[in-house]
């Protein structure tokens, strides 16, 4: 018997213990918005499950009053995959970070997205290892000085959304802890999508990488440095949407809308099957391009969990030789013999 989801409120998911993130951490904003989305999904509370790996973000399951599993570093995607495949009826959220999901767990995240399990992956990207106290991560910018890169990181950073699109994810989005409204709307879009969702949240680590995203997320800079993606609308940004993106051959370029004409700008369409467009967006970065925010890509494909369930049901319907007696003979008496 399921409980009635219509009566759920934020309070039903509020934990009985204190949240132990640093004061000012971006995680609070993400936590707050997810708690406001969970009761609105029409899903009974007991079917909502939160799985995480290791890292600051991965403490998340302890802070939501529902089923939760704080697993091991990088491997949450594997546990979530087994959980969802075993019981496709569950509503599964996976909380991870740039280290957990892209470094140690890069392999598993990729395969979860590729297989298209109906799981929502929220990746908190603060471009630093927080829980081990400030080492560079796979998303840290080149040159970042940390305790393990005193002369500056020499590594090319990963672009989480580009990675997810390359892995074949059908739902890829970016949002930020500093814009709760956009964050909430993005989570709602993911909640409503059937299939693997990848949401990169630009999240601030107030202790070890404070202000890492401020060029993008600060209120006074957002208009010029963010490209807010809206389906069907032209790619515009700036205080008065005076700047836009158009294609010059195969290359995108930033143009003055009044000179280029709005009709010549690219129009956002997240439903394009080909990954070229979404992939192009995922490589936009400052200072040459504004940072896209919103849903890059949202296409529909049948999910892994529904397919495995369907295979079982089809096989059961098509074959009646499903008893242990028949199994033991290898479904054929040809290789058995009777001893009197």
């Amino acid at each position: 018997m399921s409980t009635d989801p219509s009566a759920l409120t934020r309070k039903d998911f509020t934990p009985n213990q204190d949240l132990r993130w640093c004061p000012g951490c971006g995680d609070y904003s993400i936590h707050s918005m997810l708690l406001s989305v969970l009761p609105t999904m029409g899903v009974p509370k007991e079917k909502i499950v939160i799985v995480s790996g290791i890292g600051c973000s991965s403490r998340f399951p302890y802070y939501v009053d529902t089923y939760g599993f704080h697993t091991i570093h990088g491997r949450a995607a594997t546990v979530a995959t087994g959980l969802k495949a075993a019981n496709p009826d569950l509503n599964v959220w996976l909380i991870t970070g740039d280290g957990d999901g892209l470094s140690i767990g890069g392999n598993h995240t990729l395969h979860l997205l590729r297989r298209n399990l109906d799981i929502n992956v929220i990746l908190f990207n603060n471009e630093i290892y927080g829980l081990t106290k400030g080492q560079y991560s796979p998303t840290s910018t080149k040159g970042l000085k940390t305790k393990t890169s005193p002369m500056g990181s020499i590594e090319q950073p990963m672009r989480p959304c580009a990675y997810a699109i390359g892995a074949g994810a059908n739902f890829v989005a970016r949002t930020t802890d500093k814009n709760p409204k956009h964050l909430k709307a993005t989570l709602e879009r993911a909640a409503g999508h059937s299939g693997a969702c990848f949401i990169e949240v630009l999240q601030n680590c107030v202790i070890f990488n404070d202000g890492v995203h401020s060029e993008v997320t600060d209120k006074d800079k957002a208009a010029n440095n963010q490209l807010v993606l809206k389906a069907g609308e032209p790619l515009c940004f700036g205080e008065n949407n005076e700047k836009g993106i158009m294609l010059d051959g195969f290359d995108p370029k930033v143009v003055d809308v009044s000179q280029a004409g709005e009709d010549n700008l690219l129009r956002h369409d997240p439903t394009i099957e080909d990954i070229g467009y979404a992939s192009m967006l995922s490589h936009f970065s400052l200072p040459d391009f504004p940072v896209p925010m919103g849903v890059f890509r949202q296409t529909d494909t049948v999910t892994y969990d529904s397919m495995i369930q369907q295979q079982v049901e089809v096989a059961k319907a098509n074959r009646s030789d499903n008893s242990l007696e028949e199994l033991y003979t290898g479904f054929s008496k040809a290789s058995t013999w009777e001893v009197e």
Partner: peptide, 9 residues
């Protein structure tokens, strides 16, 4: 998971 009232971490 899926059992009402036994939610735990």
């Amino acid at each position: 998971p899926g059992t009402p009232g036994c939610e735990h971490r």
